[in-house]
Design a protein around this nucleic acid. Structure first.
Length: 606
DNA sequence: GCCGTTTTCGGCCCGACTGTTTTCAGTCG
């Protein structure tokens, strides 16, 4: 059983308990257990073989360990089933509606047996909600709006779209003039999470501009932003609104003395903040968005910078990408946080397409753009023959394309061009080209593009077969997810990564903003097994090469260091670090048998 | 249900804001 399934059962139990009116602490312990398990890199079913291991986890006691045991054994949990006899499962959907929480949902159920979003919408349209205790006309309207948003969007946005929206807004807020000291993007965007649900902006006020009146006029300015659709809240130091695409924006305006505390607070993740506050309390401090202060006497201890707050909490500075309460606080306490890979470490890009298949630019154009970005090498990896929709290359065209890439490289483009290919992994796990041909490709990138729903066992076998093929060097976009549109393929990631480690096959961290694949958890799993990562953009035009930074951000979220990422190496070292081809000549001993092939490679490498 | 250099009981992160109330519960991040 996967951790996420266990976490889901516990989370639903927590929500049902809250609807049922359980005391705060009880449902929170289920919530905390769910969050912990969701973010764990070790498998809970493995850990649970030794019950002591489970109770060593923070927030898991004897009782919770028993419950987890029950979930692993039966696939479900008795208390959850019992609560689902009392409340229908669709009631949990209601919690996704803005302004409707567990208390109000429970009330609607008890008064009207309303259990679905449609039920609630009907009640609101009929004007029946306004008379419910604790509701009113305004709440009724808010619920109708929430239903509308619920129906038409997933409520999340791709990282690069959210970033573009945020930057435009930041530039606008800065036009307020001298009242604004700084405007920074916080929230999940600062953590580089692959999708954002909303934008969090932090505005610090310049000296002499902190009076209520000055803040009021700044809020006025912000709310005149032309793309605003609806103002949600307007208080003394906070404004919230939605943009035309329903993206919610929260802006907090604070004194610059609070900057560090506020930035930690608004960067999150919520779970990280909760854990930090817990640590603060144990040390006799209390932490909020204004400062770190002593519990007794409320003496201010820190607040101006994030660094000083982490330092007072006896923690190393935690980079935003790691702030998910996934072990980063423990690591920071022992000063063993990873030194994360950064964009400047990257020397090459190992997946991109040209006009030979479905790309928009030529070999020379891609090479020129990559050189201009400072890359030292690229692999051009057009699609293979089975992927007809992309104009995939058959054997004859591939041979010609390999020659074209090598010729272009030989002409000297100021960047090393490796003659690669993105080869389809067929339904039965065979590769789309015969080994004889694969042997002639400098960098063999393998990936799945078809039959994505074959089932877990078959998909696992398929990837294992691909990895066992001696010519496979990199597995590209390994889970196949398309963010907000397509789920990852289902397969046994542990098993497949173990095989990748055994056969020295690298996994890709695909930087294409719709993919960002592998995700953070899988990257950590790969790192733990010693599987090396290649960050590639999967560019289909020159502009896409810039997306490398999203791949690096994802790699950082996966705790990767420079040494974990192969394309931080100079080209010769990179090639040596890839899985060696069968019978390939080592640099010292030329293999006469392989002469035609190795001479081609040698030429390519010149 | 978890947990302890205040505690084996009684808390559980913390504050802003709204909308309904007439001093505060619920929701949200």
């Amino acid at each position: 059983m996967e951790n996420r399934d266990i976490a889901r059962i516990l989370r639903e139990t927590a929500q049902l308990l809250e609807i049922d009116g359980a005391i705060v602490g009880r449902y929170r312990s289920y919530e905390k257990a769910a969050e912990l398990i969701y973010s764990l890199t070790e498998r809970v079913d493995e850990l649970a073989k030794d019950p002591e291991k489970l109770t060593e986890l923070p927030g898991i006691g004897d009782r919770m360990a028993e419950h987890i045991g029950e979930i692993l054994k039966t696939g479900d949990y008795g208390l959850r089933q019992k609560l689902l006899k009392k409340f229908p499962p669709t009631l949990l959907d209601l919690l996704k509606l803005q302004s409707l929480g567990p208390k109000k949902a429970a009330l609607l159920w008890s008064m009207f047996q309303a259990a679905t979003v449609e039920d609630v919408e009907k009640l609101a349209r009929e004007g029946k909600l306004r008379d419910v205790p604790g509701f009113g006309e305004k709440t009724e309207q808010n619920i109708l709006k929430a239903v509308e948003i619920f129906k038409k969007s997933s409520g999340r946005y791709l990282l690069h779209n959210a970033e573009a929206a945020a930057q435009t807004l930041v530039a606008y807020i800065k036009t307020a003039g001298k009242a604004v000291e700084s405007v920074v993007i916080a929230g999940s965007l600062r953590r580089s999470k692959e999708t954002a649900g909303d934008l969090d902006l932090l505005v610090t006020l310049a000296d002499g501009c902190t009076s209520p009146k000055a803040v009021e006029s700044l809020a006025e300015h912000i709310l005149k932003y032309p793309s605003i659709d609806r103002t949600l809240a307007r208080g003394e130091n906070k404004v919230s609104f939605t943009l035309g695409n329903d993206m919610q924006v929260d802006v907090r305006m604070l004194d610059k003395e609070c900057f560090g505390a506020a930035l930690i607070y608004f960067t999150g993740a919520k779970e990280h903040n909760v854990a930090l506050r817990g640590r603060a309390l144990k040390m006799g401090y209390t932490l909020n968005e204004y400062a770190l202060a002593t519990v007794k006497g409320e003496r201010r201890v820190a607040g101006k910078t994030e660094e000083e707050i982490y330092a007072k909490l006896k923690l190393a500075f935690i980079p935003p990408e790691l702030r998910e309460n996934c072990g980063e606080i423990e690591a920071a306490a022992e000063y063993r946080l990873p030194k994360l890979v950064c964009r400047e470490d990257i020397r090459g890009d190992l997946q991109m397409h040209t006009t030979a298949s479905d790309g928009k630019n030529t070999i020379e154009e891609m090479a020129g753009a990559a050189r201009a970005m400072g890359h030292q090498y690229i692999a051009i990896t057009d699609h293979s023959k089975s992927l007809t929709i992309t104009n995939g290359l058959d054997e004859k065209r591939l041979l010609q394309h390999l020659k074209n890439m090598r010729d272009a490289n030989a002409r000297g483009l100021g960047i090393r061009v490796l003659a690669g290919a993105e080869v389809d992994i067929l339904k039965d796990g065979r590769m789309d080209y015969e080994n004889e041909l694969l042997a002639q490709i400098d960098v063999v990138v393998a990936s799945v593009h078809s039959f994505m729903s074959v089932g877990r066992a078959e998909m696992t076998g398929r990837l294992l077969a691909a990895i066992e093929n001696p010519y496979t060097q990199i597995i590209a976009h390994p889970t196949g997810r398309i963010l907000l549109r397509r789920d990852p393929y289902d397969y046994d990631m542990e098993k497949v990564l173990d095989a990748a480690a055994k056969y020295q096959v690298a996994f890709e961290c695909n930087a294409y903003p719709d993919r960002l694949d592998l995700n953070d958890t899988h990257l950590r799993m790969a790192k733990e097994r010693g599987v090396k990562i290649v960050i590639s953009t999967d560019s289909h035009r020159t502009q896409h090469l810039e997306w490398m930074r999203y791949g690096v951000q994802m790699a950082r979220r996966g705790w990767l260091e420079k040494a974990d990422v192969l394309n931080t190496l100079p080209v010769e070292q990179f090639l040596s670090a890839l899985r060696p081809k069968p019978g390939a000549a080592t640099p010292a001993i030329p293999a006469t048998k392989e002469k035609p092939r190795s001479s081609a490679v040698t030429k390519g490498r010149s």
